[in-house]
């Protein structure tokens, strides 16, 4: 099946979207990874169908679809990514959603829309930076770095990001998370 999926992916054709989405529900991780790659390559075109899938009942398919929209970065996925990063029970899904919040393509929104959405994303990521699982905190830190670089109103929103990064750098219990916060501070020009 993976071979067939890869052929569909290689075609880079929007007509393949429904089939690739069906593959997400087959409980075949190899095929699902290939289908996610294909859907991500098709970008925004795949987003409406993916969001529909996320409303469905198949939990496995939902997790893969969230992963795909997290990688695409289309702002239409913001509500689902915010909800997922806040409270999905599967840590790998929270992780993917947090990461996705850091790579939203803000140019697709008006600047007013971006300001209010970025405020929400900021609040959720600061919460995710306290997640019990280190890898979710790590993803939240990486995403805060991405968000900080894309802020429409850095004068009010960058200081809380830097505060959060600084807190995590000094106090997180997991050295890998501290290291990620250290890197984010370097990248944002705030060497700790």
């Amino acid at each position: 099946m993976i071979v067939a999926v890869n052929q569909l992916v290689a075609a880079q054709d929007v007509a393949a979207i429904p089939t690739l989405i069906t593959v997400l529900g087959y409980n075949n991780p190899g095929a699902a990874v290939a289908a996610v790659d294909g859907l991500v390559a098709l970008g925004s075109e795949a987003v409406p169908a993916l969001l529909e899938q996320i409303d469905g009942y198949n939990y496995g398919a939902r997790a893969w679809a969230i992963r795909a929209v997290a990688l695409i970065g289309d702002p239409r996925a913001l509500p689902v990514l915010l909800e997922t990063a806040k409270g999905d029970f599967a840590l790998s899904v929270r992780r993917a959603a947090a990461r996705g919040l850091g790579t939203i393509d803000w140019s697709k929104l008006t600047s007013d829309q971006s300001v209010s959405s970025q405020r929400e994303v900021l609040a959720v990521l600061i919460g995710a930076a306290q997640d019990p699982e280190w890898v979710v905190r790590y993803a939240a830190i990486a995403a805060l770095e991405g968000l900080a670089k894309a802020l429409v109103k850095p004068e009010t929103q960058k200081p809380p990001i830097l505060d959060c990064l600084d807190q995590v750098f000094h106090h997180d219990e997991t050295p890998a998370v501290q290291a990620r916060a250290c890197r984010a501070l370097e990248v944002l020009g705030e060497p700790s």
């Binding site: 750098f169 050295p175 890998a176 501290q178 290291a179 250290c182 890197r183 370097e186 700790s192």
Partner: peptide, 15 residues
């Protein structure tokens, strides 16, 4: 990563 961080004196000596 964490083994490397220990060997290189993180956080005192940075990344």
């Amino acid at each position: 990563l964490e083994s490397h961080l220990r060997q290189t004196g993180f956080p005192k000596f940075g990344l």
